[in-house]
Amino acid sequence: MIRPLVARLAQMLFVMAGISVITFAIFFATPGSDPSARIAGRNATPETLAAVRLSFGLDQPLPVQYGLLMQRLFITQDLTSFMNRGEKVVPQIVAATPVTLSLVAGAALLWVAGAGLFGVLAALRPGRALDRGLMLLGLVGVSMPVYWLGAVVNLVTQSRFHDSWLFSWVPPLGYIAFADDPWGWFKVLVLPSFTLAVFYIGLYSRVLRSALIEANQQDYIRTARAKGLSERRVLLAHALRTSLVSVVTLFGLDFGALVGGGALLTEVVFGLPGIGKLTYDALQALDLPVIMATVMYASFFVVAANALVDMLYAFIDPRVRDA
């Protein structure tokens, strides 16, 4: 049990190291990425520029810079931004995490409930009007660009109908911390969570539905039916359990990716200062320390989620264990 675990861990570290090297390389391949002139200010003399470069350590050879960057990020944790001098990177990530977590947790609640409801309803009577209707709705949800949906939501709630009774409760865009104002925190997250959840409700309701139907047709389900169990009991007690496995693993992968900053577009459109927005701003500003930190953060969650899912599968399905 230990050996595969260690092997898996090593694989994770390898992947993350690979990602960090690629990120580093991409940054230095980008024209205009040298922050010295930006920091040195307009019309700086060559001496000023050189002094600023020195203070950033940009005169060192690339591998040394990479080593220093990694060391400051993980070991001493005093890595500072290129854009805002002296501003520590790790606290920025720590500050942005609860925002993303709130958004993603809210969306997850919505989509689990929504997809659960739609999927079960659709699977109860496959092929009928309800099934077709729900699946079409789900497909529509999957087909909309999330940032566009967010923009439309904003248009309706912030601009066109903001003064009406329907949307006057909608707070201005931005984030309110739970500690500051719990009710405000909730209000701020309602629409963004909903927007993010739409895509996943569409996706998961379809996955759940097909998994349920497939499980329904398995032999042992037919046996249960032959034994005289009611349709609903068959569905809920047996089919649901097996189909849940695949859904849960998919959920793990998606949730992991989102927590790591995958909700970037939603955060940007709704002005939420989460990890996704932090990443996006850092990429725009070519702020290498922050980029590296956010990429490491995001890939950690993706890699960890993948590892957990694989281990879960190995645990549940003995056939896969030997692979």
Binding site: V15, G18, I19, L265, S299, V303
Partner: peptide, 22 residues
């Protein structure tokens, strides 16, 4: 694995920023 774990948008955005530049 590395390609898969690289957060999709980050990879696309990073590559695009470089490519759009040069």
């Amino acid at each position: 694995d590395v390609l898969w774990a690289f957060p999709v948008y980050l990879l696309a955005i990073s590559l695009s920023i470089v490519a759009v530049g040069s």
